Simulated scan of single mutants.
Amino acid sequence: MLVAVGDTHKRLRNVAISLVSITKSKPEFLNDIERIAVQILNSWKDKQQVMFCEEARKFSFNVIIKQVLGLTSEEPETGKILEDFLAFMRGLVSIPLYIPGTPYARAVQARSRISSRVKAIIEERRSRNGRSCGVRNDFLEILLSVDTLSEDEKVSFVLDSLLGGYETTSLLMAMVVHLLGQSPAASEQLKLEHEQIRSSKERDEFLNWEDYKKMGFTQNVINEALRYGNIVKFVHRKALKDVKFRDHLIPSGWKVLPVFTAVHLDSSVHADALQFHPWRWEAQDQTCKKFTPFGGGSRCCPGSELAKIEIAFFLHHLLQNFRWTAEDVDQPMAYPYVEFGKGLLINLDRCSI
């Protein structure tokens, strides 16, 4: 979907929007997110430190693999797909020379293996459904019923979903945790918001869509982390015809890289732009054209809401169970995407209940 154009892109995007619309408020999806968040946090109970980037990637991958393919972290197939997916990710922005042993060559081979596994899962799912053994509540189940996509497009769509739901979501989680660790006031207000939501529910009752809609300050924190952190710093575009922009003419065929950072960190657009200040969103339009962390127009990321739900639910349990401090030496850097060079090691202090 990143490189498709015209009718192909429109078909893929329509499927993506349909899947997200159907999925985002379903109890099964929301419950899966919460179960995985609790599972991750329970694994910290005897730890004083964790490498947060690693934990965030584990969380985001377990969520997306469950939602897309219906696989849990305990299934052997999940580990195999993750191993190949990481090899695929490492070669995604490498020099495209197919020489054995290079990141690009390993990425191409890994993608081929993932495609084969996805095709096998599709065939197994079709066979099981043909035997009337019930259906699963995941993207793949809905995707199988879509007649507008070819078999290869469905496999590519699964890969796109894994890619979109893994790296950027986990990096945004890490950025939120990093920034909250430096802002006690924001952390405390966020904690109060989630305590109020939890106080209205039974002890072990799952969060629901209505609870998510009450997380107003959580949305402010996530938006500010997106603006300030710029997880995706730019996008690739191509002028399909001559474009007049202010006093400039962009000729047809030219490549254009809109740089989000230039707008998000512009003090003439966002007051005190170099300060992490979630409260700015109480008075600022969150959908304004000068805030574009997920792109815009027909290429705006269709899964943006899913990423926000994942982070909001994870924060709900993190804030009620832990306090944390991060090592000052590990600051986010762009390579060109955001990375924490040392993995964002955080010190944990478990809250008394």
Rank of each mutant, 00 (worst) to 15 (best):
M1R: 03
L2Y: 13
V3C: 13
T8K: 09
S18Y: 05
S25D: 09
P27Q: 09
E28S: 13
N31A: 11
I33A: 06
I36F: 04
A37Y: 00
Q39K: 11
I40G: 02
L41A: 01
K45T: 05
K47H: 06
E54C: 08
E54S: 10
K58L: 12
V63Y: 06
I64H: 00
I64Q: 11
K66P: 08
K66M: 09
Q67M: 10
V68L: 10
E77D: 14
I81H: 06
L82Q: 12
S94W: 05
S94R: 01
L97D: 04
P103M: 00
Y104A: 07
V108K: 12
Q109T: 14
A110G: 09
S115V: 02
S116G: 15
R117C: 13
K119E: 15
K119G: 08
E123S: 14
R125S: 06
R126A: 08
S127L: 15
R128L: 04
G130H: 10
G130T: 02
R131S: 08
C133E: 10
C133G: 12
G134N: 00
G134A: 00
G134L: 12
N137G: 07
F139L: 09
L143P: 07
D147T: 10
T148G: 05
S150T: 15
E151W: 10
V155Y: 14
V177Q: 06
Q182H: 05
P184F: 07
E188F: 01
K191P: 01
H194E: 04
R198P: 00
L207Y: 10
L207E: 01
Y212R: 12
K213A: 08
V221P: 00
V221C: 11
A225E: 01
A225M: 10
L226R: 12
R227P: 04
R227K: 04
G229Y: 07
I231W: 06
L249C: 06
L249M: 04
S252D: 07
S252Q: 11
G253C: 03
W254H: 12
A262T: 15
S268N: 11
H270E: 06
H277W: 14
H277T: 15
R280I: 02
A283Q: 15
Q284A: 09
K289N: 13
K290Y: 13
F291I: 05
T292G: 04
G295S: 01
R299Q: 11
C300P: 07
E305Y: 09
L306Y: 07
L306E: 01
K308L: 02
I309W: 00
I309E: 00
I311R: 02
A312H: 08
L315E: 06
H317R: 06
L319E: 11
L319F: 05
Q320A: 15
N321M: 02
R323A: 06
A326C: 13
A334N: 15
A334I: 14
P336K: 02
F340L: 03
L345K: 13
N347D: 07
L348E: 08
C351M: 11
